[in-house]
Amino acid sequence: MAIIDPRHAAKQLVYERVFRSATLAAAILVLLILGGVVVSLLHGSWPALSHFGLSFVTREVWNPVTDKFGALAAIYGTVVTSLIAMAIAVPVGFGIALFLTEMCPPMLKRPIGVAVELLAAVPSIIFGIWGLFVLAPILQRYVQPWLIDHAGPIPGIGTLFKGPPFGIGILTAGFVLAIMVLPFIAATVRDVFDTVPAMLKESGYGLGATKWEVIWNVVVPHSRAGIVGGIMLGLGRALGETMAVTFVIGNAHRISSSLLAPGTTISSAIANEFTEAVGELYTSSLIALGLLLFIITFSVIAAAQAMLRRLERRALSSV
């Protein structure tokens, strides 16, 4: 019946080439965007980097009046708030993942999982106003005075909890970040736990191990790479998180020994100051902060992806 019309066939081939090129162009565009980000950040930060050199990352001073800028306080704030967040979110996220995969009644598994994922969908700015108006006053009234009274006198770590309870500051930012990265860690670790073959677990139970022993000695070792990947993915989020931190950090460009003191992070400094920055050096220094943030988060996220990918490949080959 069908007679192949050569003109029709030729047209089909043209359509095919056009469609293929369009999809290829879109895929390449993704690479170009990342390349463009790197180039534009380098270009924008060049005046600051060439003016300050390496001292940009080693100095704490941040003074728009005298045009002296150093990123150390912002780097310190970024790293410390993220570490506080991870110290809280990793054990809690681990617990949630454990509960969802090993203990939860099947009926509740999905609703609780969805609820945790919804927490991840809430925009950053909402956590920001919640942190400022709800969490900060609670911390100021109850938690921080307790820390000052009880942890303050301990030699060594005591200096971390000195000074007046401001409510806002490094510790509060770390708390808010913890709640924000929690769903990412919980969801990734849960997915990794789910890939552990049931047979391995049942062998553990067959030897008389308790649930916790199976989890600790079978499930965790089997999914180590994935757990680390999930934690680093959460860390990447925490390092780059902007709006929530901006609300509760206090925007002070200095390094205090106390976690209760106000500070700043790279992203919150950019968010707070960028539109008000006057002068080439000021704007450029803020973009240089952005470049630093990009380098830090890129390395963390890339490492996390590499680990999760390795795990995925292993899971595929073992099936």
Binding site: V37, F294, F298
Partner: peptide, 13 residues
């Protein structure tokens, strides 16, 4: 990487 990159960097770009 872009999926988890800080959005403020896209703003700067």
């Amino acid at each position: 990487v872009l999926l988890s990159a800080p959005s403020i960097i896209i703003g700067l770009f």
